[in-house]
Amino acid sequence: MSLDLPASMLVLERGWLSANNILFFDGDKATLVDSGYVTHAEQTVELVHNALAGRQLNRLLNTHSHSDHIGGNAALKEAFDCEIIVPAGLHAVIAEWDKDALLLSPLGQQSARFQHDRLISANDEVEMGGLNWQALAVPGHDMEALAYYNPEKRILISGDALWENGFGVIFPELLGEADGLTSTQETLEMLSRLPIDMVIPGHGRPFSTVDAAFDRAFRRLSNFRNNIEQLAWHAIKVIVSFAMIERQRLPQDDFPAFVFSLPFAMDVNARFLNLSREALVSGVERQLLLVNALRRENGFLVAA
């Protein structure tokens, strides 16, 4: 089943390492929302160039500042000289390129430094693809994240605040920086009150089964609220899995050191789970093999 989006919009559906890129056409101009992971930037530029078909990319907008959403910013700026617009709450961390606050260092991820040209705040409106989009504050996964909502077509660009099956890891809660669980609850409640016919998530295909997605998201959040260890364990698996996707393959023997090199995984374990180092590594490996996120191949662990 394909979903009919306005002809002035094109979703470049990517995978997990790169977030989706959403392109909007306005005559001979265009705007892109989110730019993928840095190691995919060359393909991102090629996809955007192809889809532009001679139009000019004059704006690039981000939902939030995680590596899988901003990794192509520098390359797109270089290729198209577009204006870069980021959520206002991220001004300082991007301007100073604070690798801790950007979660690059804690998660063992890379990015390419860029400068933003302008800020967008919650409740601002931005015209893209001939439609008026409202910036909505969606704290939880990232406290400064914005979603973009068009009331006329009832489309939500949710970033990682809502997926077809869940939402992005609630980092602020696990990092002890903010009440991420409560923020996520409030964000989901706010979003669920909007009339929405279609969601374009940060990862995965666009979907119109919106009620079912909210049901799953609220259920998952409720599980996390009742059992914070479950959130901690989920987050560690996601982060190791993401890092392995970037790495592609690793000698089996190097896997423990690889996990120990991810500060976030170690901190979250120390704070919430208190597993021994051996138990942490063997647990992560076993679970990622079980869900086919990893497979064994001639003495290597390979990301699937």
């Binding site: 089943m1 559906e13 995978g15 992971y37 190691t39 393909q43 592609q248 990301a303």
Partner: peptide
């Protein structure tokens, strides 16, 4: 439902 064949390599040959 037909899912995308993307496996996160995302590099053109």
């Amino acid at each position: 439902m037909i899912t995308s064949p993307c496996i996160n390599i995302c590099k053109m040959d």
